[in-house]
Amino acid sequence: MLIYKPNQDVIRIQETTNGNDIEFHIHIFGEEPFVERMKLVREKFDENQALTDVLFYVYPNHEYRVIVRQDYYNDFVLELMRHQFLQSVEWTA
């Protein structure tokens, strides 16, 4: 399991379990470059062969709802870290 700390100057993340999936409610506070970085996160999962791995719903004011299959949870969190939306990620037992 991963525990992460959001970059609170840039993003607010709320995470809930939705059946077999994890649902993220994300709000980006700034314009550039983090809005563009979220597009890169989305492209990463749109380009792979799994159609239902990560589903993005984009709303006004840089709000997103992202539904992540449990088997892609770690990949999604690490991709957020890669694009500096998170300050830290650590493994727990």
Rank of each mutant, 00 (worst) to 15 (best):
E36W: 07
Q14V: 09
N48P: 10
T16D: 04
L78A: 00
I13W: 01
N74S: 13
P60Y: 01
R42Y: 06
Y57Q: 08
N61W: 00
E32F: 07
I13V: 09
H62D: 00
D53K: 08
Q14P: 00
V68P: 01
Q87C: 12
I13L: 09
E63Y: 11
I22R: 15
F56V: 01
V54H: 12
R69M: 11
G30Q: 09
R69T: 13
L78S: 13
D46V: 06
H25K: 15
K5F: 06
Y72W: 14
F34K: 02
V35N: 09
Y72Q: 13
L80G: 09
K39S: 11
V41G: 10
F76G: 05
P6H: 04
M38S: 03
R69G: 10
L55K: 15
D46S: 12
M38F: 12
E47R: 15
H27F: 12
A93F: 12
R37A: 10
Q87A: 10
I3W: 03
N7A: 12
K39P: 01
L78R: 02
Y64K: 07
E63C: 13
L2H: 05
Y64S: 08
Q70D: 15
W91L: 09
E47C: 06
H62N: 14
E63V: 10
M81Q: 14
Y73G: 13
I3Q: 13
H27G: 05
Q87V: 05
G30P: 04
D9C: 00
V77E: 05
N7G: 00
P6Q: 05
P6G: 09
E43T: 11
E32V: 00
I13N: 01
F85R: 01
F29H: 15
P33L: 02
R12F: 05
I11F: 04
T52G: 11
L78G: 00
E43Y: 15
V35P: 07
D9M: 05
V89H: 06
G19L: 11
V10G: 08
L51N: 14
F45R: 14
V54R: 09
V10M: 04
